[in-house]
Design a protein around this nucleic acid. Sequence first.
DNA 1: TCATTTACTATACTCTGTTGAGTAAATGAT
DNA 2: ATCATTTACTCAACAGAGTATAGTAAATGA
Lengths: 109, 109
Amino acid sequence: MPRESLGEFEQLILLAILRLGQEAYGVPIIEEIENRTGRSVSQAAAYLTLRRLEQKGWIRSKMAMPTPERGGRAKRFFSLKPAGTRRLHAARAELLNMWEGYEPEMDTR
Amino acid sequence: MPRESLGEFEQLILLAILRLGQEAYGVPIIEEIENRTGRSVSQAAAYLTLRRLEQKGWIRSKMAMPTPERGGRAKRFFSLKPAGTRRLHAARAELLNMWEGYEPEMDTR
DNA sequence: TCATTTACTATACTCTGTTGAGTAAATGAT
DNA sequence: ATCATTTACTCAACAGAGTATAGTAAATGA
């Protein structure tokens, strides 16, 4: 049974798509996550997760035409479906609830 | 290779231990997570994750003496080790970074 | 003695995340 | 034209995190 809450990497992918808007295809999605988290993201990990998210009905994708640049292959653009948007929103709410009241000083008791 | 960041459920467990302080043993840990997240947590999931966290050196545990109540078996109490505290702190920083700038209104564009 | 309560365990499995390598379609240089 | 290079995406196998179902163990109270 799939879990109710989003996985962490899934969240990162959805957030990246949301933030990138019209420019949300594989390569920038990976860069966005790398910039934001500071960790490196393999292409395979990203594309696999994108496919899984699409299968679950949280995002949709569409191939675009190639662009006239060196190596400018056709890109697959992604966007959030309503269900994905709701998931993302719910994930944030859960996190807020979970960490609410936490103060870093608690760590050093 | 284990991942650098904590899993979501692992975070919940560590946070529950931190919050419960002296009272951090299996049953209240489970209740704390259920209350905070609204989802139900199986005992197996909790104890298994507790064991994994201990194996990784993020928490320690100690059996206490039985208490004189009906069914009052010996309890295994958990506490954070420094490494676990650091992980928890780092996990929070990552989350803040990841969601920074996100506004719920972004969802409804 | 035995049902009940509280606390913890075993085992097997699915889902999520990661790795390492590879394919495909475009341009640019020779 | 051919072939190296760039950009974009794919395959397959595996490891790690999370879940489900069921069970064991040690206490009390009737």
